[in-house]
Amino acid sequence: MTDVHPDDGQLLALALDEADGGSRDSTLQHLTSCHRCRGEYDALSATVEQTLAAAPSVEPSPGFDARVLGAMGLDPTGPVKVSERSRRVRPGRHRWQLVAASVAAGLAVGVGGSYAVSQLDDTPQQSTLAEDRSLLETPDGDRVGSVTRTLMDGEPVYVVTVTTGPVGMNYLCLLRLEDGKQIEVADWVLHSERGETWVIDVPAQDVSELVMVANGGAGPVWSTARL
């Protein structure tokens, strides 16, 4: 056993997976033979792990489960089978290097209650999600995002995800109601070319369409989603 015990900061860094190479190796070496430090580290590490469940649940994009099952070599729509694990394709870590465009989570500051993206219904049935999801399209028919109706804290919300659009543009978000009226629900700026996601409360009235109007509402209509 090394004579010098790691300090609190070193144990914390190791438990949080932020220790650098040299410190990490020496601390791990020490822990193999020092029961006192090992106990303290195990307690910190277990606490970190058990706190992870507090993370907000967020529904991934449609088809995510199928992609995962495909990566496992399983066909989610195919017949139930028990296959040989060794026959499956197993992508390596280099898969991550291939990631290109992506969408960043964002924050909405709107009227009538809007939230940062973070807490979505984790209903496991994909078909249910698909039924509640509408495409956000430009007048030219380009798909620029989606609007999903889901639940947050038991209350219905629309999750508005913009996957592409002019950065820096200010959008006024309107909800058109079945009775022909419309209400302004939020005023957003797209900060990243990778897109953003916002959450807005579903009003009591029946809604027919969500409209994003460019230039803070001065127009033109940038995109719409039939709800």
């Binding site: 973070s118 979505l120 984790d122 049935q125």
Partner: peptide, 9 residues
């Protein structure tokens, strides 16, 4: 399907 929201979140 059970854990995807928690993992992705």
């Amino acid at each position: 399907r059970r854990f995807q929201s928690a993992v992705f979140g």
